[in-house]
Design a protein around this nucleic acid. Structure first.
Lengths: 232, 232
DNA sequence: CGTACGATGCTAACAAAAAAGCAATTGGAT
DNA sequence: ATCCAATTGCTTTTTTGTTAGCATCGTACG
C-alpha cells in the first residue's frame, strides 16, 4: 500500500507525535528524510492522505493527524493503535462491557473528486482521499464512492457546498431520486431525477438553476445519493 | 480458487509485507517468481484482485493490500492480520467481488434523543441508539454525542428533519456557531448563536421562525454542532 | 484426435507515478 | 508588516504499472 518513502515519512511523523505531541513541520520532515526541498515532502504527504493514513487541514501549519498505521508499525491488528479516540462516553450509556477504543463499523470510501452543481465538472476521475462512512449508510451490496459537492445547486435539498455525498453505483433511478448523472458522456452532475415518457429532467434544488430536460439516451445515471456527511 | 502461480505470488507478497511493511513492486515480484516480464505479474495480480485476495489502487506504485489469505497460508492467526470486522454489523461476507475498502476509523456515538427546531424538546436525556460517525468529524478531545433533528427550523442551514447532528460538548460558543442551547433550564434547541453585549440571540435558519433574544443568563450552551450525517 | 480455451511466458513500447530540486507565492500568525 | 510554513509551478530522472501481440502447454470436450 505504501512505498518505502511514504512509510518512512509516516513512521517519522508517528514517532514525532509520540514524542512531543506535535506533528512535525514540512521543514522538519525534510530534514528527517534528508531532502533538500519541501516540495518532495508535500507530495509524500499528499500520497499518504490519498491512501487514508493521515488527515490534514490545508494551509494550516502542522495540521497533520495520523488516522491509521500499517501493521508494520505496530498498527492496529488488535486495536492497539487508536490514533485518537473519543469514546463518546456519555453518562449511563449502554455500552457493551468490553472497554475499548470504540472503533465502530465504518468503511473507507474513496473520494473521487468534486462534483459540481450548476456547471458540471470534469467527470469522475481519481481518488483525492478517503473518508470513513458509517456502514449503516451503505447498502449490503453494491459499490459506493464519495464525492465532494461543489456549488450550491442542491441547496434546497440540504446539500451544501463542501458536503461529502455518498453514492451507490447504479444505472437506474426512480423519480425523485437524487442522482449522479452523466450528460452526453461529458459532464457529471448531482441532480434530482425525473423521468416522463422518453425524456429525463434533471432538476436542481435551487431556483437559480433551471431544470434541464434531455432525451433519455443522453443521460446516464451513474449512481444515486445514499448519504451525506458534513463537517463543520 | 487459486492457481499455483497465483498462490505463489500471494505468498510472496505476504511475506514481503511481513518483512518490511512495503509491498513489492512488479519488478520485484517478477524476480521472485523468476519471470522475465512484468506482464505475467500483472495478470496474476489482476486475477488475485478479481478473486478478492488483494485490493489495490490502480496506477499507484506498490499500492497493494492483502485482504484475505487462503487457509493454506496461515490464513488467520499467524499474521495478526484478520481483516477485521468490528462486531455488530453485517458479516463481512456479502462484499462484491471488486472489494470495497475495509473497516475504518469511526466511533459509535450515542444518540441522545431528538432535538427540535421550532418548538423545543424534552431536554436531552437518554440514549435511543448509537450511530457510527467518522473520526474525522470529531475533535481530538472532548465529549461528543448525537441528536436527531426534528423539524425544519434549520433548513436554510442545510439541516433537515431527520438528520443526525453530531455535537461536541462545550459551554462556550462563538458568534455564528450552531449550538445546542438550553433555555431557562427547560428546553433544548438547535440554533445559531449570536451574542451582542449581555444578550444572546438564538436564530433559526428558517424565516418562518423568529429569532429569540435572551439575557445571557437564561441561555446555556450545551454543545456545538460539529457534524451532520444524513441517510437517504 | 483435433479444437477451444485458460493459464502462462516473453518482448517491446508506453504511460504514469514517485521522487527530487529550485523558485516563487500564498496563508497564517504575531 | 513580517516571519515562517505550506503550496504551487516547472523540470528532470528513475521506477513502476499497463498494454498489445504472440507463442506454448495442458486439459476439457465433441
Amino acid at each position: 500500500m505504501l512505498t518505502k518513502k511514504q512509510l518512512d515519512l509516516l513512521e517519522f511523523i508517528h514517532k514525532r507525535m509520540q514524542k512531543d505531541g506535535v506533528p512535525p513541520s514540512f521543514d522538519e520532515m525534510k530534514l528527517a528524510l534528508d531532502l533538500r526541498s519541501k516540495s518532495g515532502i508535500h507530495r509524500l504527504i499528499t500520497a499518504l492522505e490519498e491512501r487514508g493514513f493521515i488527515r490534514r487541514l490545508a494551509h494550516r501549519a502542522r495540521a497533520i493527524e495520523i488516522v491509521k498505521l500499517p501493521e508494520s508499525l505496530g498498527g492496529e491488528s488488535s486495536s492497539g493503535f487508536t490514533p485518537k479516540v473519543i469514546d463518546g462516553d456519555k453518562p449511563d450509556v449502554a455500552r457493551p462491557a468490553n472497554a475499548e477504543p470504540v472503533m465502530a463499523s465504518a468503511t473507507d470510501l474513496p473520494v473521487m473528486g468534486r462534483i459540481a452543481a450548476g456547471v458540471p465538472i470534469a467527470a469522475i476521475s481519481e481518488v483525492s482521499h478517503q473518508v470513513s462512512v458509517p456502514n449503516s449508510m451503505l447498502a449490503a451490496s453494491g459499490e459506493h464512492y464519495a464525492l465532494e459537492v461543489k456549488g450550491d445547486s442542491m441547496i434546497e435539498a440540504g446539500i451544501n457546498d463542501g458536503d461529502v455525498v455518498v453514492i451507490r453505483e447504479t444505472s437506474s433511478a426512480d423519480n425523485g431520486d437524487i442522482v449522479v448523472a452523466l450528460i452526453e458522456d461529458q459532464e457529471a452532475t448531482l441532480k434530482r431525477f425525473k423521468r416522463s415518457g422518453r425524456s429525463i429532467a434533471l432538476e436542481a434544488a435551487n431556483p437559480a438553476y433551471e431544470t434541464r430536460v434531455y432525451p433519455e439516451d443522453m443521460v446516464k445515471v451513474q449512481g444515486k445519493l445514499v448519504g451525506l456527511i458534513r463537517t463543520y
